[in-house]
Design a protein around this nucleic acid. Sequence first.
DNA 1: GTACAGTTTAGAGCGCGCTCTAATGCAACT
DNA 2: AGTTGCATTAGAGCGCGCTCTAAACTGTAC
Lengths: 136, 136
Amino acid sequence: MDKLLTIQEMSRLTGLSAHTLRYYEKEGMLEGVARSEQGYRVYSEADVSWVQFLVILRELDIPIREMKRYSSLRSQGPSTVHERRLMLEAHQLRVEQQMLKLGENLEKIAGKIQYYKEMEEDIEIGLRRKRRQKCP
Amino acid sequence: MDKLLTIQEMSRLTGLSAHTLRYYEKEGMLEGVARSEQGYRVYSEADVSWVQFLVILRELDIPIREMKRYSSLRSQGPSTVHERRLMLEAHQLRVEQQMLKLGENLEKIAGKIQYYKEMEEDIEIGLRRKRRQKCP
DNA sequence: GTACAGTTTAGAGCGCGCTCTAATGCAACT
DNA sequence: AGTTGCATTAGAGCGCGCTCTAAACTGTAC
C-alpha cells in the first residue's frame, strides 16, 4: 500500500491535467507534495484523496478563491473544523438553491419543447393535406 | 397594453444590465429592436418575453455561442422549429445529468459535514473533561 | 442657459480558470 | 552519442461573459 504516484498517474486518477495540478499547488491548495531525487513531484494516497475532494468542490462550482481559503483552514489543523463546516454548509445551501432554479427552468424548457412538438405535428398534417390534394 | 419600454425598464424586467442588453443585441440575439426618433431603443412586450427566454437559457448555462445559434434559427422562421427542439432537448439532457452530478457531490459534502460535526462534538467533550480536571 | 439624468457608439478592460509555451533537465533505449 | 519521453519553471495567452469608458447627443427641470 501507500503507493507513490507521478503527476501523470495523479492526473488520471483525478481527471485534472498535469498543468492544472501544478496550478492548484502553486495557488496553495496542495501543500507538502513530496519530491523525488530528480525534483519530480511524488504524490501520496493522501494527496489523491485531497485532490479528489478539491475536484468535488470545483464540480459544485465553488470558486478557486474559496477553495484556497478552505485549503488554508485545513492546513491550520483541527481548530478550524468548525469554520470549514460552516463553509461547506453555506455552499451546500447555495447549490441546493441552484438545483431548484435549474429544475424550474428545465420545466419551462420542457414546456417549450412540448409546444414545438405540437407545431411540428401541425406542420406534418399540413403537408399530408397538401399531398392529398396533389395526388388524389 | 403593448407597452413600450426603455432600456432601463427592460433591464429591470429581465435582470440584465443595460450594458448586457446592448451586448446581446450586438451579438445578434435580439434582432429588430425598434428605435425612437432620438435613436433610443424602444422594447416591445414581445422583446421582453424573448429576452426573458434568453435569461432562462443563460441560467441553464447554455453558452452564448449556442444562444446565438438558437436566435439565428428563430429568426429564420417556423421551418427551423425541429432543429430548435433538438437543441433544447440536448441541453435538457445535459442539465439533467449535471443535476445528478450535483446531487452526488452534495451527498459527499453532506457526509463530510456530518464527519466534522462529530469531530466538533469530540472536541467539546475533550474540553469539558479538561475543565472537570481543573476545577473539581 | 445650464445642469442633470438618460441614451448612443466603438472599443478597451477585466476576472475567472485554466492552458499552453519555451527553455531546461534527467533517464532509458538503440 | 543521440533520440525519445517525461519532468521542471516562470510566465504568457486564451476563451468566456460580461463590464466599463469616453465622447457625444437629447430631453427635462430649474
